[in-house]
Every structure is written in C-alpha cells, then in structure tokens.
Design a protein around this nucleic acid. Structure first.
Length: 98
DNA sequence: CCGTTGACCAGGC
DNA sequence: GGCCTGGCCAACG
C-alpha cells in the first residue's frame, strides 16, 4: 500500500455533504499534513479522489485546485449541500469528526 | 543518498 | 487579523 493510496482511501470515505481537513486526513492515515497535500497534488486529475472534500484547517480552499481553482471547488462543495461562510467552508456544520 | 520542494498547521509578532 | 517562521515527512532530481 503506497502512501498515496492510503490517503486516497480515507478521502474516498468522506460522505457527501461532509469535508475533512488535510491535517485530519493526515492523522487518520498516519502521515504529516504536507504528505496529504502532496498526495492530492498527485491526484490533480481529480478523477480518482474527490479532493474537493478536503479543505484547509481554516475552512479555506486552495488556489491551485486541479479542476480549475477554488471557485470551481467551492461550486462543487455547494453542489453537495455544503454551506459557506464568506469564502470558507462552514466547518462547524460540515467537518467530519470521528 | 542528499537537498529541495510542497493542495499543511500552529505559534509569534 | 494578516504575515513570517519552524516543524513536519514523502516524493523528485
């Protein structure tokens, strides 16, 4: 099992309408948050893992998103029923905590 | 094998 | 509340 696959597996387990932070995925997988971000970057195709359900600890998104940018990512999240506070995800309501 | 590079996060100013 | 710094760890050259 590669480190990427472990990250992908956890991200795939995120239910619709919920989000996780990079650091949270890192804790579950057992790697540093940087590695999670690296794995997401490797997934820049966006066809393998719903990386739009992974956001910053702050609830903010990323500029270099695979599908085109944070605007596209925000649209995808809203499409799944996730609400936003300004330019950030409403973590209080949608952060998946285990 | 070593140095650099990140889609990060927390702390200090 | 924005910006910088240190720590973190796998992938790349």
């Amino acid at each position: 099992m590669n480190t990427f696959e472990k990250v992908y597996k956890v991200v795939l387990k995120i239910p619709r309408g919920k989000v996780l932070t990079y650091g949270n995925v890192g804790i579950v997988v057992g790697v540093s948050p940087r590695v999670v971000g690296y794995a997401m970057h490797a997934n820049k195709n966006g066809k393998i893992v719903p990386c739009h359900r992974v956001v910053f600890r702050d609830g903010s998104l990323t500029e270099g998103y695979a599908f085109g940018g944070k605007d596209v990512q925000r649209k995808l999240l809203v499409n799944e029923g996730i609400s936003f506070i300004g330019d950030k995800v409403d973590l209080e309501s949608h952060l998946l905590r285990g």
